[in-house]
Design a protein around this nucleic acid. Sequence first.
DNA 1: TTCCAGGCGTATC
DNA 2: GATACGCATGGA
Length: 267
Amino acid sequence: MTDYTVRAADILLKTPDLDLDDTLDCGQAFRWVRLADGGYTGACMNTPLTIRPTAEQGVFLLENVTEQQFLDVWVPYFDLGRDYGELKRRFAEDETLSKACGFAGGIRILRQDSWEALSSFIISQNNNIPRIKGIIGRLCEHYGGYPTAEQLVGETPESLGFLRAGFRAKYIVDAVSRLQNGLDLAETAKLPTDDARAALMQIKGVGPKVADCAMLFGMHKLDAFPKDVWVKRVLADWYPDGLPECVRGVEGIAQQYLFHYIRNIER
DNA sequence: TTCCAGGCGTATC
DNA sequence: GATACGCATGGA
């Protein structure tokens, strides 16, 4: 379902069901910057990438990427092993989901680094997307890339004042401390979703919503279903009796289509 | 100016 | 367990 060719220092990727705006600017990752030609520049932790659409539908250029790097980093990052076409056909039996998939059919769930996702969504709480991007931008500028938890050891809410993250700074500090004292995100990712959620919620500032975002976007646990203010509206308006059968096991993917849909039609 | 944002901790019942 | 309120900051 996904084909690619090596072209000089670049990779030419041919894949259906990917749209860069839908996937890289839909509120699941906060570091991708849109370029004038519709391309994006960003990174997975500290592996940088510029990806651009080409004149041909469904064909993308990944610049300065080796074949090894493509296979090791970007195939998993863009979840290229999963058939989203098949998924959308399953979702089509539900009227609202069908509309959401029609609105932005090029959404994919990125496999982000677990620490980057966890810390990003700690920052996201009671915050808006432009400002989340600002805080994370200052963080990366200061550390010359997204800092690992180890790099943040020794920081205090005061020393992180330059982020202007407000009350969230102390939550980042607590997360770093937990990771230094036995909480292992790679091990947590192997737990059943309910157990992983409980483990993450030991961190101050991590409630059910942030935990589910960390699991969905940073651990690729597709049954995690983050309920933010927008998704609560979706549930109240369209699914008062619960989610449809067709999303079972991949509730998180459905969540992202619905989140993007309601955010863009209700404004 | 006021309201609100990909929520959560705390107090209170 | 449910509900009410404060919280840092800044975009709209």
